[in-house]
Every structure is written in structure tokens, then in C-alpha cells.
Write a protein that binds this DNA or RNA. Sequence first.
DNA 1: CACTATTTGTCCGTATGTATG
DNA 2: TCATACATACGGACAAATAGT
Lengths: 244, 244
Amino acid sequence: MLENSDPMPLYHKLYQLLHQAIHSGAFATGAKLPTEKQLQEETGMSRVTIKRALDELALEGLVVRRRGIGTLVQYAPSPLQATHAPLRGLLENLEEMGRNTQVKVLQIKYQTPPEGIAAQFKISPEDTLLHIIRRRNFQNGGRSFAYYQSWTRIKNFPAKVTPFRSKPRLQLLREAGLVFGEIHQRLGAQAADSNTARELQLPLGHPLLTLTRSSYDRRSVLCDLLIAHYNPELFEYQMELRRE
Amino acid sequence: MLENSDPMPLYHKLYQLLHQAIHSGAFATGAKLPTEKQLQEETGMSRVTIKRALDELALEGLVVRRRGIGTLVQYAPSPLQATHAPLRGLLENLEEMGRNTQVKVLQIKYQTPPEGIAAQFKISPEDTLLHIIRRRNFQNGGRSFAYYQSWTRIKNFPAKVTPFRSKPRLQLLREAGLVFGEIHQRLGAQAADSNTARELQLPLGHPLLTLTRSSYDRRSVLCDLLIAHYNPELFEYQMELRRE
DNA sequence: CACTATTTGTCCGTATGTATG
DNA sequence: TCATACATACGGACAAATAGT
């Protein structure tokens, strides 16, 4: 019944179980939860543990506990917290983003990429690529919400920070002679590693929205790879679809 | 740094983080994980805690630990071929996905939506909408990778499961008389809550890719809201961009 | 060959959190 | 409320294996 490979405190397991039961509508609003004694018999846990789980539900406002009465459900079943969309700071497209936000270049130099990257570029392990790391935040020293790493197959690019203050990266690359053909993007989600967590001021393991953009030249040779990590609370991808 | 809403042991949190990183291919087979000391500095945890997380990975066979050497990834990079859905183009293309996958309808009935949903539809709190919950998995009883919830403003829709076996949801809605104009999509990331975690067989708090699609009729009135949660290890959104 | 730096393995003591009766 | 037992997390110390000088 409560088999869970994850090590988790007993009281929290029970809390989750009841939390889910209430949300799924198993207990209607106003209904009475099993008493501490009943739960004790059903689960085999001690009464203190049961009490702690019920107290956490009460603290959250999901139930109300009254001595001599029992534990009553106080909550109208809602299927999910999917309403968690405050619609703040949503940015319609990448170009407009530049107006309200600014980019800081953290690093720019030629480096030998990690194995997986080198494989995608089909280069030998000792070859170098232009490696740029950037971070985007809201203007006026606002919070950071994006962390970019890019690898580019380009020769003799001046590894200086200054030009990035005025022009976007892709534009600089085009001015340096790169010509793009197909561009392929993938959107996914990942847990924040320690590096990204630090840069985006998030706890370790926090969900991130990730974008991987592969840009090819006219002969379908990969020449630019961008890996972006976004704080999903401050940024989401938005698009309009129209029937034709 | 590690805010804990869920009481989960630190060592297990780190274990999960590394587990996911290895599975996602962030560390190639044979690659060296950060040393205990490096992880100690990056995460701020004590060495014993770090060690326990690494030991669990070793016990599982994902890594091999050698004193004087370090911790080496032993895992053959998974046959990860995430399914993908095209972003641009007609919605119908999205249904091509249906060839390798199948949908199970978990619930279909008229319900009063939670407050946040009702607000988006601009209906009064006691009005009902058609509420459908579905789950998509790979064929032949394969793993589930998507969990859908939808709210639809439509009258007298037969709340039966059977038609969904042969036709996609949007097509059924159109056949029932709905006409769509603008459609708005947002892609983000969220941590798995207990409900979604169970449905997708993922640990609590696992990063999920989320899609919210708002469909409006010809008069720009919201008539359908779809909230989708994806396992990012099995599914990602993909799009092609072309210079014009 | 020794010497050193690195890295993991093992052990100690202590403090706090969890769970029982 | 209390006493007890166990798990978690910390910091420190030392030993053993490895690689490079």
C-alpha cells in the first residue's frame, strides 16, 4: 500500500496519501476523515505519526480538526495546481525579449568541447570550438532567468565581450561570415545542476525549461549549438497557432 | 541553498539529481563524475552525504567507484529516443504521434472547475465544464509519458470513453460543433506533484515539460483549455526553423 | 625507487530529526 | 510528555589505492 522506493518520512507518506485522496475527491468537502485510531489500525503507524500527518493537512488548510468531533475536509476538490499561471513576465518572442532584458557574457573563448558535443559536430576530441556562456536577466539588475551555453564552429572570432552589449549573438556570427540554412530546436525539461542552480539562483534540482538549438549551414553541416536553461517561473515559451 | 518543501533526505536528492544527469547523457559512459570534494564544494553538503549518494549509484550499477581514481559512469547511454511533436504547423500533425502511442481516457465528466480555471473561462464558480483526463503511453503497454487534463465549454457532449479510442479529442469536439479560431500555446517546466508523479511513474518533484493550450472560438471566447504534462526523458517538443 | 597530490574507504563523535511505546 | 532507538547530516581524522614527478 505504501510501498515507495524513495526514503521519505512516514508522516509525510501518510500526508501525501491523504492529500491525494482528498484532491481526487475520495473524501467530499465536509466529510469526516478516519479517526487517528482508525488510521493507526489501518496503517500500523503510531498515533504520534498519524497526528503529525493530519496536523500538516490542517496547517495547509485542507482539513479542520476539532476535538471530540474528528477531522473534517475543508477543501473543494481541484484536480491539479495547474492554475499556477500568474502570467507574469511572459515574453512573446526572442527579439522583443531584448528590450526588457539584458545579457551578460560570462565567458568567451576557444575550448575543446566535451565528448557529446564533439560527437554532434563530428570533430576530433582535440579540436576547439568557440564557447560562449551568457546569462540573461531582467533590466536594472533584476533576477536572472536564462543561462546560455553555445558552441560554434567559426575561425578567428574575436573573443571579446564588448560587442555583445549592443548586438545579439547570432547577428555577430552572421556578420563574421556564418550563413545558416536549417535550424532545429528542441524543448524539454531538466533538473538544475549545481552550476545552473547557482547562476539562476534556484535550489539544486529545480525544474528548468531547456532549449537546444542546432544551426546548420547551407550544406547541412552543424555550425552552431545553443543550449539554454530557463527558470520556468520567470520564462515560458509562447506561440500562436492559426487554422488555415 | 536546498530549500526543502518535501522532507526528502539530502543524500537521496543528490542521488536523484545524478541519476537523472547520467540518464540524460550529461555524463558519457566512462566519463568521470565530479569528485566527492568537488561535489562538496558545489552543493555545500558534507562528504559523508555525498558519499552515500554516490554509493547508491554504485550499488545500482550506474557508476563504478575506485579509490585514487574517482567515480566512473558505467551506464550505457540509454536507447533514449524521445518521441517528439512538431511545434509549427497544423495541430493535426500532432496527432501523427498517435501511430506509435496510445491514449487511455481516465475520466470524462462534467465538473465545476477550480477557481483559477473558472476565472480563465470567465464563468461563475458553480458552472460546469467538460473535464477529461487522459494518459498517453507507448504502444503495447509501454511506459506512460504524457498526462492530459482538459476543460471544455461544450453542451451535451456524451461523456463516454469509447469514441476516444478511434478519434483524437479535438476532432470529436469539432464534430460536436465547436469551431476554433485562435489557439495559444505556452511551454514551461514544473516539478511533478504527487498525482502526476504517480501517473507517469516518476519520483515526486521530477522535472516535467508542461504545455498549456488555450483554444478560442471565432469570437475570441475561450472554449477549450488543455494542460499537458510530459516526462522529459521520453518526450520533447521539436521544431524546424527556416530562413526566408 | 621514494615522494607527493588526489581520491575513495573507514571510523569517530556530535547534533538533530524521525518513530515507537 | 517522556524515554528510547534509529536515521540523517555534519566535521574531522586517518588509511589505502592510484597516478604523476
